[in-house]
Simulated assay, not measured.
Amino acid sequence: MYLVKTPWWLKKLYPQLIWNAEPGNRSIFLTFDDGPIPIVTPFVLNILKKYDARATFFCIGDNVRKHPDIFEEVKQAGHTIGNHTYNHLRGWNTDDQVYLQNYLKANELLDTPLFRPPYGRIKRSQVKLLQQARPDIQIIMWDVLSGDFDMSLKREEALNNVTKNAGDGSIVLFHDSIKAFHKMEYALPLVLEHFTGLGFTFKAL
């Protein structure tokens, strides 16, 4: 069970987390979780380049260790980097100090103030620890979830999740992972084409 469009009341419950970017510029903020991964991440980079789009990649530290060349490609293409922990930890099921150390281990490779908790699961106590460890941290959530990770979802539905719910200032979540690739490779180019036709630009956080 997940919400495609993050409701206003959830955003109000966690005001210390960032759910949207500032509206007013007809901009959409695409984000990609779980990379860098061979084949998948380079595909994303090529599609973004075609539309002169910038995005934010929330990288898993261990994947950066395994694929430093792809990580370098992401940076060289002008995209923004975010921390997604070193081992994709689920915060609700993880000891606070273990979570903090895993974040710090990833940040040795990533060195970024942007952070997204895997699965969107993070305790208030973990938020506080991360803020103490890095005072300039920005914990980025999302406004629209593509659902590309959902094995029961049709790829057309992943596309509609974004085109029907995203708008000015939306932070949209895709995944550059093997699991999500089938749906993401279908939906992403069509999302870029759709919103470009409506006069939107795609920016990095």
Rank of each mutant, 00 (worst) to 15 (best):
I137N: 08
P38V: 09
K123Q: 11
L188N: 01
F29H: 12
H88Q: 07
K164S: 14
I81E: 01
I28F: 00
D62E: 14
K179W: 03
T80C: 08
T6I: 09
T163K: 09
A180H: 05
T163L: 12
I37T: 13
L13H: 00
A166Y: 04
V144K: 01
D52I: 00
K179A: 12
V144S: 00
G199Y: 07
I140F: 07
L188C: 03
F43I: 05
G197T: 09
Q76E: 12
M1R: 15
D69H: 11
Y186L: 03
W92K: 10
Q131E: 15
I122S: 06
F181Y: 15
D168M: 07
Y51K: 10
I81V: 12
S152A: 11
L114Q: 04
L145S: 05
I81R: 02
P38H: 07
K164A: 14
E22M: 08
F29I: 04
D111Q: 15
I47W: 10
M141D: 05
T31Y: 02
E193H: 11
T196D: 06
F71L: 10
P189D: 08
A77Y: 09
T6S: 11
I171C: 02
L153K: 15
I178Q: 12
M141L: 14
F115M: 08
L45D: 03
D33Y: 06
Y2C: 03
G169Q: 09
N93R: 15
L145A: 06
K75Y: 04
L153M: 15
P135M: 12
E156F: 01
R134A: 07
T6C: 10
Y103W: 11
R90I: 07
N83Y: 05
L188H: 03
R54N: 14
L110C: 01
T41R: 10
Q132H: 11
G197E: 12
D62W: 00
L13E: 09
N63G: 00
D111F: 03
T196R: 13
L104E: 12
T56N: 02
V64C: 04
Q101F: 06
V191I: 15
L13R: 14
D136A: 11
L173Q: 10
Q16I: 06
F57H: 09
L114S: 02
R134M: 13
T56A: 01
S177G: 14
A204F: 01
K164C: 11
I171R: 02
D33A: 07
K128T: 13
S27C: 09
T56H: 01
R116H: 05
K123C: 06
A106G: 10
Y103T: 03
K105T: 15
A187S: 14
I178Y: 13
Q97K: 11
G167H: 10
I47V: 15
L205F: 14
N93T: 12
K128G: 00
D148V: 04
T80H: 06
N87G: 06
L10F: 10
G24N: 05
T85A: 05
Q126W: 06
L198D: 05
G91R: 09
Y51A: 07
F181I: 07
M184W: 02
P23F: 01
L48C: 08
K5C: 01
T56V: 03
G35R: 09
I137D: 06
Q138R: 15
C59A: 07
